[in-house]
């Protein structure tokens, strides 16, 4: 049995463990801003590191990212933490979620001039500011699939041996996007469409990062992503191997937004970040790190690769209010169809 020494060692280790679980304090900057966002935004190849460096250079503060699996998980987390959420800004919700996010009562008006914002449908809101947008698309591996689906209908009805990885609409904004996309196209037949598509789904991941990782490592020949995703492979990897499939019915639009938390410890700094978000420094980083289109016209040219991307003829989008009213019912419908 443990002697006194081992008892001491045990308690020392335990103390160390507990101490290690608490965040390391003592940063050099005296002001601090925590931003809740999604996982891929803060990946080393994502916009996070560059934006952090740029913002810290002008604010003399410490910017901290906290990443969760994906956009809807962000909202879940806020609902869970309520006013104890230890952040100033939440970045990574989309228009589908803004009504529900406002209903939590955790956000307050940003009070920032958003005149420079140019997004499809001219989305404007006093609480949430757009920072980028894009269209959802099925991205495929041209070495594994010769004839990609040309419509949502073909995706739903196609060969179930050609798998696709999708995201969970309960945690991920692309997942929710596909749900709304199918609802928009199929209406009341959405459940039937999901039942049919189900066999093509290799796996449902909680977030975009994992799904896209599975796709690029060859686990599945298709993934739910964005029309802009191939640009990454063309620019960073100089390959045309991965392409987005253009769908006849049009593509569902995603406008990503950020908002200011009522309980922000340093609101001034939080507002400073939101202003910075619409600046050139932030916006120019977005296309080649987040691989989305900037919400503010940027001075620099987009890489040529962006010209070769699928340009959706039709943008599909629900009003935020409609999504808020129906999200739970539609997700239950999805759960039911997918669990059959």
């Amino acid at each position: 049995m443990p002697s006194k020494t081992t008892n001491f060692t045990l308690s020392a280790m335990l103390a160390a463990g507990l101490a290690a679980a608490t965040p390391l304090a003592a940063q050099t900057a005296d002001r601090e801003l925590t931003v809740y966002t999604y996982e891929s935004f803060v990946a080393e190849w994502g916009p996070g590191p560059q934006i952090e460096a740029a913002f810290e250079a002008q604010c003399s503060c410490d910017l901290k990212w906290v990443g969760v699996a994906d956009g809807v998980a962000l909202l879940n987390r806020l609902k869970l933490e309520g006013e104890e959420a230890a952040a100033g800004v939440v970045l990574g919700l989309d228009t589908n979620l803004v009504t529900e996010a406002k209903a939590t009562g955790l956000f307050e008006a940003h009070g920032i001039d958003a005149a420079a914002v140019e997004v499809p449908g001219d989305f404007a809101d006093d609480t949430f500011l757009p920072y980028d947008y894009g269209h959802f698309a099925v991205v495929y591996d041209s070495e594994a699939i010769a004839a990609p689906p040309a419509s949502l209908k073909e995706l739903v009805e196609g060969d179930s041996n050609q798998k696709i990885v999708i995201q969970d609409p309960r945690t991920s904004t692309p997942g929710l996007g596909l749900l709304l996309w199918i609802k928009k196209v199929y209406g009341d037949d959405a459940a039937a469409a999901w039942s049919q598509l189900k066999d093509r789904v290799l796996t449902v991941t909680p977030g975009w990062s994992e799904a896209y990782g599975l796709f690029t490592s060859g686990e599945a020949p298709m993934v739910l992503s964005y029309t802009t995703s191939p640009a990454y492979h063309m620019v960073a990897e100089e390959t045309d191997r991965y392409q987005a499939a253009a769908f006849d019915e049009g593509h569902y639009l995603q406008i990503e937004v950020a908002g200011l938390l009522k309980a922000a410890p340093d609101k001034e700094l939080a507002r400073q970040f939101l202003t910075f978000m619409l600046s050139q420094e932030f916006q120019q980083v977005i296309p080649t790190t987040n691989w989305m289109l900037p919400a503010v016209a940027i001075e620099a040219d987009l890489p040529d690769a962006f010209d070769k991307l699928v340009k959706p003829a039709t943008s599909l989008l629900y009003e935020p209010q409609v999504v808020a009213e129906n999200r739970k019912a539609w997700i239950d419908e999805w759960l039911n169809a997918m669990s059959k």
Binding site: N76, R170, V201, S339
Partner: peptide
């Protein structure tokens, strides 16, 4: 390894109901 709602057990569903759906 479940890969979606078709292969979900009660334990996972409890977790998802709390952390996914709240």
């Amino acid at each position: 390894l479940g890969g979606g709602p078709a292969a979900t057990t009660l334990e996972v569903a409890v977790y998802q109901a709390l952390r996914f759906d709240f």
